[in-house]
């Protein structure tokens, strides 16, 4: 049986009378790059907060990294990685201090942190940047470093919330190659983006509209099903209907 890192059944989240997430179900396999798309206000952030153990569902069930989204939220937090473009690293700390901070938060001991810092900096070819303040690093370095640190505790799955927003074209592409590398080593990647070309790099993509998953499949399947030349065309067809009602 294929290993599932995420299994979600009939997930619902209501705020008062407003249904932000309306009965969604999906699975993500180990090592898969799963693109989680949707228009603004479609419910992506709400759903993602539940998957990360930050919010409880109104109803429905599921597991992330093997832990229940209803009863094992603390376990989920310990076993996932999270990175967003907006907040990931502390700019006023040095590179090694960021490793120490995040390693400590995730319960690594001093020795484990030292080993991780060495091996990750080596893999990134950033050994010489160990004593640099993060604020002084070029964006491309920062981004790769943030991605590594999000995985300092060897999580099964890493959540990337718009990791490439506002990033220049070259850095953005390099970052996707980093994502691809991690996935090929078995890390499950759950990613949101507004760049439709990046949707093409995902193994499978889901598109949320008004709290529901309107479409789910590989980019090739979705393009075929919606008769679109690219994912931008698919997204416009699906999300365009929802946006008209706003």
């Amino acid at each position: 049986m294929e290993e599932k890192t995420v299994m979600i059944r009939n997930l619902v989240k209501k705020f008062g009378s407003f249904t932000a997430v309306d009965n969604i179900s999906f699975e993500v396999s180990r090592g898969e790059i799963f693109g989680f798309l949707g228009a603004n206000g479609a419910g992506k952030t709400t759903a993602m907060r539940i998957l990360c153990g930050l919010s409880k569902p109104t109803s429905g069930e599921g597991t992330v990294a093997g832990f229940s989204i209803n009863s094992e939220q603390e376990q989920i937090k310990r076993h996932i990685g999270y990175m967003s473009q907006k907040f990931s690293l502390y700019p006023d700390l040095k590179v090694w201090e960021n490793f120490e901070l995040f390693g400590g938060i995730y319960g690594l001991n001093d020795k484990e942190i030292r080993i991780k810092t060495d091996s990750m900096l080596k893999a990134l070819s950033l050994e010489d940047a160990r004593n640099m303040y993060v604020r002084d690093m070029p964006l491309g370095w920062k981004q790769k470093l943030a991605f590594s640190i999000a995985m300092v505790h060897d999580p099964e799955i890493v959540f990337l919330d718009e990791p490439t927003g506002g990033v220049d074209p070259v850095t953005r592409r390099n970052f996707w190659e980093t994502i691809y590398d991690a996935a090929s080593k078995g890390v499950t990647v759950f990613v949101t983006t507004h760049y439709m070309d990046e949707a093409e790099y995902c193994d499978r993509v889901s598109i949320m509209v008004d709290g529901r998953i309107e479409a789910l499949g590989s980019p090739a399947e979705l393009k075929e099903a919606y008769g679109a030349a690219d994912m931008d065309g698919v997204f416009t067809r699906i999300a365009g209907r929802g946006a008209a009602g706003q």
């Binding site: 603004n40 718009e162 507004h194 999300a239 365009g240 946006a243």
Partner: peptide, 14 residues
């Protein structure tokens, strides 16, 4: 100044 940053593809077009 960046009126469409973080805005989805459909809203950007509008």
């Amino acid at each position: 100044d960046e009126p469409t940053t973080g805005v989805d593809a459909v809203s950007r077009r509008e």
